[in-house]
């Protein structure tokens, strides 16, 4: 029965004490973005696409499945009667990152990326040719529709899982690396996974 005691004033004082305690002693809990970053979800549908040139057979299924026709492929027949993509361009500026190309690829050659920074100074730089489309640096395939990658990726760090101190990545961009060596954990497992997929 709160009406039976002297109740007005206590609550306000309690609140004031709580806020001043936060002011004095609680650490900052927000992520200072350019310097600190959280690890994204392992299945993130990032805002780029990662292409694997070795696995691609230039079947153009991804280009056909793209609702917006963003993927531009020109192919050439090799002597051994296989095909090779001479031009493989994706217009990230028009992409809505629906992931249909990733889901439709029969050879697991195109993946969603994990990056979330897509700001550029002009639209032309959003059209990414095949040399830059492969996994390198922070362009890494995410676990979206690719469970073989998901197990190898670092777990997501969230503020609600208890602070940011341990999970936070360092601000420096990792130096450009080959896709297999980019994530230390994934380094060993990835070839094996690929073998399995290839067999299938």
């Amino acid at each position: 029965m709160p009406d039976n005691r002297i109740s007005l004033g206590q609550g306000i004082l309690k609140g004031l004490a709580l806020t001043i305690k936060h002011f004095i002693s609680r650490p900052i809990i927000t992520v200072q973005y350019p310097e600190e970053r959280l690890v994204t979800s392992r299945r993130i549908r990032g805002c780029d696409l990662v292409w694997d040139s070795e696995r691609c057979t230039a079947c153009c299924t991804c280009a056909k499945s793209c609702p917006q026709g963003n993927i531009h492929i020109e192919t050439k027949v090799r002597p051994d009667n296989t095909r090779e993509a001479v031009v493989f361009e994706i217009d990230h500026g028009r992409s809505m990152f629906c992931g249909l190309c990733v889901e439709s690829c029969p050879f697991d050659a195109i993946h969603m990326g994990r990056s979330y920074e897509r700001a550029t100074y002009n639209r032309d730089s959003l059209v990414i040719p095949k040399e830059k489309l492969v996994a390198q640096g922070d362009r890494q395939p995410s676990g979206y529709f690719r469970p073989q990658f998901e197990e190898t990726l670092p777990p997501q760090s969230l503020l609600i899982y208890g602070g940011k101190s341990s999970e936070v990545k360092t601000p420096e961009n990792p130096p450009p690396q080959s896709p297999a060596t980019a994530a230390p954990v994934s380094e060993k497992k990835e070839p094996a996974e690929r073998e399995k997929v290839g067999v299938k």
């Binding site: 806020t19 936060h22 927000t30």
Partner: peptide, 10 residues
């Protein structure tokens, strides 16, 4: 800045 500090941000 101060209200930010009260809300545990910078």
């Amino acid at each position: 800045r101060v209200v930010g500090r009260f809300q545990l941000r910078l």
